[in-house]
Simulated assay, not measured.
Amino acid sequence: MQRRIFIKYLLGSSGLILVNCGSPPKEYQLDQVTDCADLTGLSEEELEKRKSLGYEEETPVSDNRCDNCQLYLPPTEKRKCGGCQLFKGPVKPQAYCTYWAPRVENA
């Protein structure tokens, strides 16, 4: 019992605070997403970033879609959903954001 009191006193007087000794929060990985409409793994910060960039799931400008944007990351064998270089989370091909940039084809 004395040892426990001593340890509490020692930790308390040193200013050392132990907070959540568990594993760190899991980093969001787009290649692990199986439902391209599921945003549950994104932090509030990432959701706000998507919103601040004007991301819309259906483009209001017919010629400006994510799938013809320079920043779009198309699905691959490893990654079921498309993504974007500006924010985390799945991106639909027919979506749009205010940072749309025309895809430049290699000549």
Rank of each mutant, 00 (worst) to 15 (best):
T98L: 01
V91P: 08
R3N: 08
K88T: 00
A37F: 09
N68Y: 07
K88W: 01
E57A: 05
Q85Y: 08
F87H: 03
C66T: 01
W100Q: 05
K26E: 07
P93H: 06
T40R: 14
G82L: 07
E56V: 12
T59C: 06
T98G: 04
Q32D: 07
L30M: 12
R50T: 03
T76P: 09
E27T: 12
S13G: 10
L18F: 15
Q94P: 06
D31C: 15
N106I: 12
T59I: 08
E58Q: 15
Y28A: 09
E105T: 09
A101L: 03
P93S: 10
C84T: 00
V91L: 04
V91C: 06
G89D: 00
K26P: 05
T76I: 07
R65Q: 07
K80D: 13
G12D: 03
E48C: 09
K92E: 05
Q29M: 12
L18T: 12
R79N: 01
C81T: 03
L18D: 12
P75L: 12
K88M: 05
Y96R: 09
I5A: 14
L71E: 01
C81G: 07
I5S: 11
E27Y: 05
L73S: 05
Y55A: 04
K8W: 14
P93A: 11
Y99N: 06
P93Y: 07
K8D: 11
G22S: 14
E56F: 00
R3K: 07
V19H: 15
R50M: 09
I5Y: 15
G82N: 10
C66V: 00
C21K: 10
K88E: 00
G54M: 06
R4F: 15
N68P: 11
I5F: 13
D67R: 12
R65W: 00
G82P: 08
Y99H: 07
C69H: 03
G83L: 02
I7C: 10
I17T: 14
Y96A: 06
A95I: 03
L30A: 13
P102T: 04
I5T: 08
K26Q: 06
A37L: 13
G22R: 14
P24Y: 08
Y72V: 01
K92A: 06
C69V: 05
G41Y: 02
I17N: 13
C21R: 11
P93K: 06
T76K: 15
Q85A: 13
E46Y: 02
D35R: 03
G89P: 04
T34W: 13
L73C: 04
C66Y: 00
L71R: 00
L42K: 07
P75F: 09
G12A: 02
K8V: 06
L71P: 00
L11K: 14
